[in-house]
Write a protein that binds this DNA or RNA. Structure first.
Length: 136
DNA sequence: GTTCTAACA
DNA sequence: TGTTAGTA
């Protein structure tokens, strides 16, 4: 269960998630309004996304590209689980880590995340994140 | 400089 | 969805 916390650990601000997913801030916030994702918040009300959130966004993105609308996605995707909802917000700690998190470290985290042994989801996520982490 | 909410071309 | 206004 150590992996659970790692995936639900809120680490990145919307700017990084934009690069990771290739979605606009508008879209990301819009999907949150429709409860497709429930990112954590810092004490200053800034969103903090976890790997889980990024995965969900990538899944949403792929569905959108297939022509599915929000209503359709809501039916296909499981509602946000309770664990991923609260197993997070180490606000102070996360904010500190966020400052230290940059290119090199982000790549390391992404690689570590992508290498995890997960048959189903891993493949899709890897395909879409590879863009980001193979460049620069 | 970045992110947030709200609102409208 | 894009984009802009006014903040924090």
């Amino acid at each position: 269960m150590g992996d659970e916390i790692r995936r639900n650990m809120a680490l990145f601000p919307i700017g990084i998630v934009m690069k990771l997913t290739d979605l606009t801030a508008r879209q990301i916030r819009y999907y949150e309004q429709h409860e497709l994702i429930v990112p954590a918040r810092t004490s200053g009300n800034q969103r903090l996304f976890s790997f889980n959130d990024v995965e969900r966004l990538l899944e949403i993105k792929s569905l959108i590209e297939k022509g599915v609308n929000i209503a359709g996605i809501k039916q296909v995707m499981n509602p946000v689980s309770k664990e991923s909802e609260d197993a997070t917000v180490v606000s102070e700690l996360s904010e500190v880590k966020r400052r230290e998190l940059s290119d090199a470290q982000l790549h390391r985290l992404l690689k570590q995340q992508l290498i995890e042994k997960r048959p189903g989801k891993a493949s899709m996520i890897q395909g879409q994140l590879s863009r980001f982490y193979n460049k620069k």
